[in-house]
Amino acid sequence: MIFPPDLITGVISFIFTILIFSYLIGDNPLFRIAVYIFVGVSAGYVAAIALWQVIVPRLIYPLVFGSMNEKIFAAIPLLGSLFILLKVSSRMAGVARMTMAFLVGAGAAVIVAGAVMGTLIPQVGATINFFDLNAAVAVGISKGEAFGNGLVVLFGTIFSLVYFHFGASPKADGSMHRFGLIEIAAWVGRIFIGITLGAVFAGVYAAALTALIERIASIINFFANLFGNF
């Protein structure tokens, strides 16, 4: 009898799901078996993907089939790759720092530019534009509502930022306190941050619940297919 691939996949999937759910009774060998196998399989999968979708097309192909320019340009990352591989050796790990320095330096530049151009300026601008009542009316929002919402968002943004200001000065009794206005603003900011984190929490729960639903649905499907096939 030849088992269809879906059935095999379903069986394996069901087994691993049960093994993971066994964690509810505590950390047990079945759970560990599933996790260790999962980590190994994932790592093997990632290694295969990195080789087939990064090393081969971006490094091997240019070196083998590319033009002279492509070969020259591919030789440098090849050298850097060898340096990174030396990181495995504790004695030669220092050489890998050069490559890591390159990655860190380039990454820092990308982060700086992205933060400024992609978040800071647009978000500050959006906070201001909230009071553009004409634009709000254009999208069907009343002026009062737009003004109120803009005010809430503005206060929420400012107070939340103030909350993360931890500068303080010592008092006469030796205790450290923030400046009075900042303390008040930070107190309000905590409310906004609490609301935001509550929303995030609800989103995480929703995502987890959806995952649980998907797992239970797959078990149901597995049994449905199993009994349907037999």
Binding site: V200, G203, A206, A207
Partner: peptide, 10 residues
């Protein structure tokens, strides 16, 4: 994902 939505909303 629902968990990322609040931070994407801005």
């Amino acid at each position: 994902s629902a968990q990322a939505a609040p931070m994407i909303q801005p």
